[in-house]
Design a protein around this nucleic acid. Structure first.
Length: 262
DNA sequence: CGTCCAGGTCTAC
DNA sequence: GGTAGACCTGGACGC
């Protein structure tokens, strides 16, 4: 296992997770370069602890090897700063959750995404992100009147249905299962409501960093940072081609440099 | 009040 | 393979 590079002490993250059927509030802190995970309630049984460990490992990308990327950018004019441990985009415990949330970001303002996901968590999941079966069973009324997901409602329900029935296995898209990027992309694009943007975004969350995410935020952000007046997606892709398998991550870090203090 | 568009996608040419 | 129009929703904006 590659070393987990933790940038600083006192980092804190909180999330509600469903562990062995029970919603737990989980806090993750950094203490002496190690992650410490705490949960509310009585000590979780073995099954819940296993689920918790798996969730944290995926959320913080503990099984991914960033060393090749850091070696690549060590002397990079723009990205050398990131070589000290940046790039661990927070993922959900399950690929299903990432795909659902990503669909909830499409063609709407961020406030809409928050509304839809909040409804899924609070009104359907009892405080944690709902299981596929729960989303599959939820009536259309929920998606229309509570989540106010509009036309996405049908996509979300259909997706949940296929995952719940076993017809669709999104977790199989994780890198450890060995599917080539091209196959994973093809499967993602075949999902209802998943186009080039959502596919690229989901690929990043899967730890597959080749594809650049183009949307109404990243495009202007790139222009602002480079000082260009305009640049086509193909031009931007060409600019990041030197980063190879990490082009998408390099693009993202270039755009989000200002999100970090200092 | 109508129009536009926001972390796009789908269908039909 | 590339492009127009429609699509839920709800804020922002112009009139």
């Amino acid at each position: 296992m590659p070393p987990a590079i933790i940038p600083e002490d006192n980092s804190y993250y909180g999330v509600a997770l469903r562990l062995d059927g029970r919603v737990r509030h989980v806090t993750i802190t950094v203490e002496s370069s190690e992650l410490r995970v705490r949960v509310t309630g009585p000590r979780p049984a073995a099954r819940a602890r296993t689920q918790l460990a798996a969730a944290v490992r995926r959320m913080f990308r503990l099984d991914e090897d960033f060393a090749p990327f850091y070696a690549m950018i060590e002397n990079d004019a723009v990205l050398s700063w990131a070589a000290s441990g940046a790039g661990r985009m927070l993922a959900a415990p399950a690929v299903f959750e990432d795909v659902v949330k990503t669909i909830c970001t499409t063609n709407c303002a961020w406030s809409g995404t928050v509304r839809m996901v909040s409804a899924l968590v609070n009104d359907l999941g009892g405080g944690a992100f709902p299981e596929p079966q729960t989303m599959a069973k939820a009536p259309e009324k929920f998606y229309r009147d509570t989540a106010r997901a509009g036309y996405r409602g049908a996509y979300l329900k259909a997706l949940a249905k296929d995952v719940a029935s076993g017809k669709l296995d999104l977790e199989a898209l994780r890198p450890e299962h060995g599917l080539p990027d091209a196959d994973v992309e093809e499967r993602l694009l075949a999902l209802p409501g998943v186009g080039p943007y959502a596919c690229a975004h989901a690929m990043m969350l899967l730890g597959r960093y080749h594809r650049l995410v183009f949307d109404s935020w990243t495009r202007p952000a790139y222009l602002r940072i480079t000082g260009r007046r305009r640049a086509s997606d193909r031009t931007i892709e060409r600019a990041f081609r030197p980063y190879g398998a990490f082009a998408g991550l390099a693009f993202w870090l270039t755009l989000t440099r200002g999100w970090l203090p200092g």
